[in-house]
Structure formats: structure tokens, C-alpha cells
Design a protein around this nucleic acid. Sequence first.
DNA 1: TCATGGATGTCAGATATCTGACATCCATGA
DNA 2: TCATGGATGTCAGATATCTGACATCCATGA
Lengths: 156, 156
Amino acid sequence: MSQDGGGIELETSLGYLLKEASSALRAAMEEVLRPLGMTVTRYSCLELLAQRPGLSSSELARGAFVTRQSMSTLLQTLEQEGLVTRPDAAPIGRVLPTRLTPRGRRRLESASAAVRSVELRMLAGMDETEQEAALRALRGMVRALREGAGGPAEEG
Amino acid sequence: MSQDGGGIELETSLGYLLKEASSALRAAMEEVLRPLGMTVTRYSCLELLAQRPGLSSSELARGAFVTRQSMSTLLQTLEQEGLVTRPDAAPIGRVLPTRLTPRGRRRLESASAAVRSVELRMLAGMDETEQEAALRALRGMVRALREGAGGPAEEG
DNA sequence: TCATGGATGTCAGATATCTGACATCCATGA
DNA sequence: TCATGGATGTCAGATATCTGACATCCATGA
């Protein structure tokens, strides 16, 4: 598993490492969530709803980094399971504001604790300054990636 | 899209931001790879093979962060398309060393250039020092996550 | 010599997620 | 008033990826 080559140097590529870290985090989260009958996407959806009640399906999709079609399907499941509720008709436009049920809130609690433990483990060994630096770096990357993305022509 | 709440603070959660950055990177990569008839996983597989010819399917899977079953399926496709080759029988054990064909190498070239441009865009605005800090932080996170993962009991 | 653990490759089936398409619905401006 | 762009929600079908299971195959040690 070590040799030279052209192209992108995987060992030192920030992009590759980003994917590696994200993958490790996701795996760790799935591992602690599975015994609770949860997945990362389900958890993300519930956590978003806990923090911002009334989010639409599309907003939840963007927050959980999936398409709105995927979130739409997931919400139907969560609604059947009684973890979230939505009005039968849209109060305004087509938006159906979604909320956690008490049952959903309970399910989220245990999941949230599990995820928090994973995040703490991930941050073990980093002091405040390092965490700040990491946050800044990641925010910069997100911003740079979005700026150039298809849509608006970039300037200066 | 802004309000307070309990649980994990998404705005300042390094885990959430990690996912956000990784998602933005993946989206940007898919966007430039699609016109080339490529996906991130396909590209990753070819790039790994370019840098380390003879990798096994399982090793490629680990390098591309998918299961060995997924990689096995992907390799069958790539083999049919003539981008990679594998011996009919395993030289030792069950391992089938995989290699790029000239055609695979050509396909990789354009994809690699596209990906490189995305990575450069992502790094725009970060100086050498910041990149080093980001690398160190991400490596630390990966290590911390893997240490605690299921397998061996952690110590001191 | 032989049983066993660990790794590999792959088939089968389940599941999650995506793309494409369509029907709304609001805001905007002619 | 009315056409239009942009956003939303969702159905349908395609695709990617996963879990479970099985058959090897090597290395190891009793």
C-alpha cells in the first residue's frame, strides 16, 4: 500500500483526506446508531427538526445533504412510524412544515447522545485552537467549492 | 434557516461541517466528471490503480471507501468496458491483481485533470500553513475515530 | 497432519439514493 | 390581468451501495 505515481497524490491530497475523514465519521456514526434502529440520514433529519421545527422537506434535504426526492421518501416513512407530523394541506404555497412528535423526540434523544459521543471521540486530542483552525479551514473549502459551482459566473 | 435548540449545534459542529465539506466536494467532483461519463467511485478506483498497479478488489474497496462487494461489482463493469484487466485465476490465494489497460489510463487522464481543477478550486485562498493545519486536523480525526471503533478495546 | 482464524471474491437480495418528469403555487413584472 | 421563473412535493424508474451468505485459500499453531 505505498508507491509513487502521477496524478493526484492520495497520501497528501486534502480532498482524499476529507473523504477519508468523512467516511470514518459516517461509519462510526452508523455503528452506534444501528443498535438504535437509526441511520445517519434519519438522525440528521430528526436533529434538524429538533433545532428548527417546521422545516420543509426541501430544507431538510439540503440540511441532510440528500436530494429532496430522497427526503420526501424518508419523511413518508418517518410519518408512518409516528416520529414526525405534517399538515394534510400546505398552509402557504406547497410547503408542508414538518415537526417532531413526542415519540420522535424521544427516539432522537438516545441517538443524539450516541452521536455526541462519537463527535467527542473524534475531537479527542484536539485543543480549542486546533478545532477553530479546522472549522475555519472546512468553511473555507465549502465556500470555495460552492463559489465555482456551475451556477453564477465567478468574479475576481 | 436559523434558530436555537438543544442537541448538537449544527452551526458549530465539526462533524456536521465535515459532512458538509465532503458533500460539497463530492458534488463538485460529480459535476465535472459526469460529462466524462465518470463517477467519483469509478474515478477513485482508476486513480488508485494508476498509483498502485496490482491492487486487489478488497484493497481498492478500502481505498475508495466502499464495501468489497460494491467494488467487486464495479470492477466487473470496468473489466467489461475494457478499462481494467484481471487474471483469470489468482496467482496466490484468492487475490486477483487488477491493472489499468491503456484505454483505462486514457480515460483516467481527462478525469484526473477535471478532479485536479476541483481540488485546486477548493484550496484557493488557503496558504501552505493553513493546508498543513487542515491535513493535520483531518488525520487526527481519522485516527481518533478508528481507535475507538468496535474492534480492539481502547487503552489509556 | 490437521483444525482454525482471517482474508478474499462473488452471488443474491434488500435498501438507499439518484435522475427525470410532472403538477402545483407564489412572486414578479409586463 | 396574465405570462413566467423559481421553488416545492412527489411519483416512477434506474442505479449505486449495502448486508448476508458462501466457497475458497493461506498462515498459524496444536
